[in-house]
Design a protein around this nucleic acid. Structure first.
Lengths: 341, 341
DNA sequence: CTGTTAGCGCCTTCAC
DNA sequence: GTGAAGGCGCTAACAG
C-alpha cells in the first residue's frame, strides 16, 4: 500500500516522468491522446500527487494559514467557516492555528506557517500582541497577509474590520435614547485597535449628547464572560453600578448580567446593557441581550477574497485594502426601558 | 530576504552540507567544537530548517491532523485545546480541519492530511459518516489513528469516549428519582455509536424501574439548538409533551427549553430536562440546565497521548486501546422538582 | 570525525 | 512531442 508516484506511472506506461508531469499538469507540448491515456492510467493506478514534493520545487503550496487568538467563543469559528468556503472551492487547504490568546503561541504559529510555505496568512491578533516585529517583516517581504477584526492600524496591510467606532457610537446613543445618562463602558484589552475605536465611539456619543464624562468610566476587561462577571461584581461591591453598560462583546455583557442578577438588580430598569458581536447566547439569556449584529461569516469570506487577490496577482506592489463592515443593532429586552414605570 | 539554507551555511563555514546537517540534528559522529561552531553560525545567519524538504526525505513530519465535524459549539474547540497542549510541548504541529458535518468534507480532509504526510490523525466523525471505507484502509495500513467522542465501534482502532451508556442511564434515573415516569429522549443522529449507547442507557433505566416504554419515545435529532427547538415545537403542537426530557446534548436541551418557555410551560414543574456535555450556556439559561459534566479537555489530552504512543512506537502491531471517560451529573434547576408544590 | 554521493517526488530547462 | 538531466533542501549511506 505504498504511494504510487509519478515514476511508477511512467514505468507502467513506458514513457518518461516528464511526459507524465506535463500530462498531469495539462501543459502545452503534449499530444492530447497521450495526455488522456496518461491521465486515465494515473487514475487507475490510484496516483495522487505528493504535495510535499510539489511544494519543494514550486512557489505555490495551495495552502493558506489562519491564525486566531481563541476559539472558545463562536465568533472565530464562524469567521473560519467563511474563509473555508472561499478556499475550499479554489482547492486550497486551510490550516487553522490557535494562539490561546498568547503572543508566544501566535508567533510560533506564524513561523510554522511561513516555514511550511503557505501561500498566505489570515490573522486576528491575540489580546496581548503588542510586538509586531515579525508581522512587519512579513509585510516588508510582501508576504500575502490579511488581518481581520483584531488588527493593528499602524500596519500597512489588508484588513477587514467592523465599523467599531460607529457601531459603538450608535449602541451608546441607543442607551442614551432610552433616557440613560449614567453610562459606563466595559472596554476590552487596552491596546487593540478594536478596543480603542470602540472606546472612542462611546466617548464621542457621550460628548455629542453633552453627558458628563469621567476617567473611571471606561474599564479594561478581557473578552470572557468571567471577566465581565468579576468586574461588575467589583462595581457592585464598590457601589458604583451605573444605569447603563455598553459592553465590548456579548460574553462580557452576559457575565455582567449574571453578576447583576445575582445581586437582585433588575434589567433593564436598574441597569440597561448592550453587547457586541451577536452571540447565540444573546437571545437565550434572560433578559435577552441587545447586541450589535455583525456579518461574521461575511468577514471571513471577504478576508479570504482579499488574500486570494494578493496571492493570485503576484505583483511586487503590495496591495493593501481595508474593508469596513457595517453592523446593525439588534434591540432586545436588556435595553428596552418601559417608560411607564 | 531569502530563506537561508543548509547550503548557505556550509558555504560560509567552508565545510560540507552533511556536516551541517549532522551538527544541527545533534548526531553522533561530530566533534563537539565544530558542532557548536556550526550551530552558532547557523543562528547568526538566521537559518531555519525547511520542514518541507525534511518531510520529503524522512518519514516523520512532526505534524498531526485533527478532523472535527464542527466547531460552532464549544465542545470540539475545548477538546482541541487539550490536544494542542500535548503536541505543542513535543514540538508537533497540529493541523485542524473542520468537516462541516458533511461526509464529503471529512473525506477530503482526511485525504489531504494523509497526502501531507501527517504522522497521525485524531478524528471525530460527522453526523452523516456511515461510509468508513477510507478510515478502514488507514487502519489496515496501520496508520496512527485515534477516534474520539463520535466513534464507530466496529472500527478496530484506539478510541477515547465518554461513558455514554452509563451517564445517560444515570441522567435518566435522576429524572425518575424526581418522580417523573413519563419520559422521552431527544437522541441525536441515529447511526452514531454515541447515540446508540445513550439511547440504550435511557431505555435500560426505564426498564430497570419498570416504566412503560413505547416506540415514539426516542426521537432522532441533530446536535443543534435549532433542532431541539423544532422538535419540541412539534411535540407541543401534537400535544405530546412528556413530563421529562433527556437530551443528547445541551444545545438540544436549550432549544427545547426555549420552545417550552415560549408556550408557557413551567420548567421543571411541567417538564423537567437534563442535557449532556456541560456547555457554558447551561448555567446561563433560565432555569439553569442540569447536564452531564464531562472532562472535555482531558479527552483531548488522552486522545493526543494515545496517538503519540502509536507514533513513537513504530511497532508493526496495531496498538488499539479504548479509554472510557466517566462524567458526573451536574444538577441544576431544570430537573430539581420541589415536591412541596 | 568529515566529505562525497545518491535520492525523496516533482517540475523545468534543454536537447533531440 | 518526448526524453534526459538537474535541482528544490535535506538526510542517509558509504567512503576516506
Amino acid at each position: 500500500m505504498k504511494h504510487v508516484s509519478i515514476k511508477d506511472v511512467a514505468k507502467a506506461l513506458n514513457c518518461s516522468v516528464s511526459t507524465i508531469s506535463r500530462a498531469l499538469n495539462d501543459k502545452y507540448d503534449i499530444r492530447p491522446e497521450t495526455r488522456d491515456k496518461i491521465i486515465k492510467a494515473a487514475k487507475e493506478m490510484g496516483y495522487s500527487p505528493n504535495p510535499i514534493a510539489r511544494k519543494l520545487t514550486q512557489k505555490q503550496s495551495y495552502s493558506i494559514g489562519v491564525v486566531i487568538p481563541e476559539f472558545v467563543n463562536s465568533f472565530f469559528p464562524e469567521v473560519i467557516i467563511g474563509i473555508q468556503e472561499v478556499f475550499f472551492k479554489k482547492g486550497y487547504q486551510v490550516l487553522i492555528m490557535q494562539s490561546n490568546e498568547q503572543y508566544e503561541y501566535e508567533l510560533a504559529n506564524l513561523k510554522r506557517l511561513v516555514d511550511n510555505f503557505v501561500d498566505g496568512i489570515i490573522i486576528s491578533l491575540t489580546k496581548e500582541s503588542d510586538n509586531l516585529t515579525f508581522i512587519r517583516e512579513l509585510i516588508e517581504r510582501n508576504y500575502p497577509l490579511v488581518l481581520f477584526n483584531r488588527v493593528d492600524e499602524s500596519l500597512e496591510v489588508s484588513k477587514v474590520i467592523f465599523d467599531d467606532y460607529k457601531m459603538t457610537f450608535l449602541a451608546t446613543e441607543h442607551l442614551i435614547s432610552q433616557g440613560i445618562t449614567d453610562l459606563m463602558y466595559l472596554g476590552g484589552p487596552i491596546h487593540l485597535s478594536l478596543s480603542k475605536n470602540r472606546r472612542r465611539g462611546f466617548m464621542d456619543a457621550l460628548n455629542k449628547h453633552k453627558l458628563p464624562t469621567f476617567s473611571s468610566q471606561i474599564i479594561e476587561t478581557e473578552f470572557s464572560l468571567k471577566s465581565g462577571e468579576e468586574i461588575v461584581e467589583k462595581l457592585i461591591s464598590e457601589n458604583k453600578v451605573p444605569k447603563g453598560l455598553v459592553c465590548i462583546n456579548d460574553p462580557i455583557a452576559i457575565g455582567a448580567i449574571k453578576a447583576l442578577k445575582n445581586h437582585g438588580y433588575k434589567i433593564p430598569q436598574d441597569v440597561a446593557l448592550i453587547g457586541f458581536s451577536e452571540s447565540p447566547m444573546a437571545s437565550i439569556i434572560e433578559p435577552s441581550l441587545s447586541s450589535v449584529l455583525q456579518p461574521t461569516r461575511e468577514m471571513g469570506k471577504l478576508a479570504a477574497e482579499l488574500l486570494l487577490k494578493q496571492i493570485e496577482s503576484n505583483s511586487v506592489v503590495p496591495m493593501t485594502e481595508t474593508i469596513i463592515l457595517p453592523g446593525t443593532i439588534n434591540i432586545r429586552e436588556s435595553s428596552k426601558i418601559t417608560h411607564d414605570v
